[in-house]
C-alpha cells in the first residue's frame, strides 16, 4: 500500500511539470512582464524607468527559460521559469504582483472556502443520496417519474439564476440574512446560510439523478435479486446491499470534486462577497495578477492528483476485494 502511494506520488511529478509548462506558456505569452508592470503602476505619470524598476523588484527582468549571461547552473536558475514556476514545487508561491505573499493569503482564504464547501458537500450528499434512494425505492412509479422530471428541471436552470434569485428573495425582500459579507468564527454562519442553500438547490437536480442511476444499476445486479428472493424487506435490500455496493462510485464522485470544493465556487464567492479562494482567483484574473493565478492553478492540480490517490485508497476501505498494485 505504501509502495503504491509512493509510486503514485512519483507519477504525479511529470504531470505537475506538464501543468507548470502549460500555465507558464499561457501566461507569459499572454502578457509580457512589461504589461503587468504597467497595470500595477497605474496610468498617471508613468515612465519606462519605473516599469524597469518594477520588473527588477519582482524578478521579471530575467530571461524566460535560459540565461546565457549567467554561469553554470545559474543559466537555468536565474530565469523567470525557475524563479516563478519551478519554485512552486516546494510550495513557495512567492509574492503576488502587488507585493503580498501568496502563501499567506491562501492560508487565510482557504477557511471561508472550506466553511462553504464542507457543509455543502456533507448536507448535499445526505440530501442527494436520500432522495435518490427514495426514487430508487419507488422506481417506475409516479413518484419516481415526478422526481426525475423535477430533477431535470432543476438542473436545466443556470446556477446564475439560483444565485441572483436567492439573493433577491431571501436577503433583499425577506431580510432573513445579510446580503453579502463575511465574518470570522461563529458569526460567519449568517453569511454562509444563503450560499450553502443556493449551492444545495443548484446541485440537487444533477446529484439526485447521478446517484439514482448508480442505485438502479446496483439494484439490477444478481446479488440484489438473490437478497430479495430471500424475502428481505426492500428497504433492507436498499440500505444493506445496494448502498454498500454503491459506495465506490459515490466515493469517486466525492473525492474528485474535493479540489473544486477547496478552490471555492468562483461565482458564489464573488456574488456573496466571501473572501475565499474562489474570489481570490476571480480578483486575480480581473487584476491580471498572474502570479496568483499560476499559484492557484498549481495548487488545484496538486489537489486533483491527491484526490485521485485518495479515491484509490478509499476503494480498499469500502471494498476489501480491491487491491492496490
Amino acid at each position: 500500500m505504501l509502495a503504491y502511494i509512493i509510486r503514485r506520488l512519483l507519477y504525479a511529478i511529470p504531470i505537475l511539470i506538464g501543468v507548470n509548462l502549460i500555465t507558464f506558456a499561457l501566461f507569459f505569452v499572454v502578457n509580457t512582464p512589461d504589461d503587468v508592470a504597467r497595470v500595477h503602476l497605474g496610468d498617471k505619470y508613468l515612465n519606462e524607468e519605473a516599469v524597469a524598476n518594477w520588473k527588477a523588484a519582482r524578478g521579471y527582468d530575467k530571461p524566460l527559460i535560459y540565461n546565457p549571461g549567467a554561469s553554470g547552473f545559474d543559466k537555468f536558475q536565474q530565469t523567470i521559469f525557475f524563479e516563478k514556476s519551478a519554485k512552486l514545487f516546494v510550495f513557495d508561491f512567492g509574492a503576488a504582483d502587488d507585493g503580498r505573499d501568496i502563501g499567506y493569503d491562501i492560508r487565510q482564504r482557504m477557511w471561508p472556502s472550506l466553511a462553504i464547501a464542507i457543509p455543502s458537500l456533507i448536507i448535499g450528499l445526505l440530501i442527494n443520496v436520500t432522495v435518490a434512494m427514495m426514487l430508487a425505492f419507488f422506481r417506475a412509479s409516479y413518484i419516481d417519474i415526478v422526481g426525475v422530471i423535477a430533477g431535470v428541471t432543476l438542473m436545466s436552470i443556470s446556477s446564475m439564476f439560483y444565485i441572483i434569485g436567492g439573493q433577491y428573495l431571501i436577503s433583499k425582500s425577506l431580510h432573513l440574512v445579510p446580503i453579502s459579507g463575511y465574518d470570522e468564527g461563529l458569526s460567519a454562519i449568517k453569511f454562509l446560510v444563503l450560499p450553502i442553500i443556493v449551492g444545495l438547490i443548484g446541485g440537487i437536480g444533477s446529484g439526485t439523478r447521478w446517484y439514482r442511476t448508480i442505485f438502479l444499476e446496483e439494484i439490477n445486479r444478481d446479488y440484489v435479486r438473490t437478497a430479495r428472493a430471500k424475502g428481505l424487506f426492500e428497504s433492507i435490500v436498499l440500505f444493506k446491499h445496494v448502498l454498500k455496493n454503491a459506495m465506490i462510485p459515490i466515493l469517486t464522485g466525492v473525492v474528485v470534486i474535493l479540489p473544486i470544493l477547496f478552490m471555492g465556487s468562483l461565482v458564489t464567492e464573488s456574488f456573496f462577497g466571501i473572501p475565499g479562494l474562489g474570489s481570490y482567483v476571480i480578483d486575480a484574473i480581473q487584476a491580471q495578477d498572474f502570479a496568483i493565478v499560476r499559484a492557484m492553478v498549481f495548487l488545484g492540480s496538486v489537489l486533483y492528483i491527491v484526490g485521485l490517490i485518495l479515491t484509490d485508497i478509499s476503494y480498499t476501505l469500502v471494498d476489501p476485494r480491491v487491491r492496490l498494485s
Binding site: 427514495m134 425505492f137 419507488f138 412509479s141 413518484i143 439494484i219 439490477n220 440484489v224 435479486r225 430479495r228 428472493a229 424475502g231 428481505l232 424487506f233 426492500e234 428497504s235
Partner: peptide
Amino acid sequence: AYKQRQRASAISNSTIG
C-alpha cells in the same frame, strides 16, 4: 407510500425488481 410499498414488496418481492 413507503409503508405500503414495503408491505407490498414483502408479499411479492420477486415481481417488482
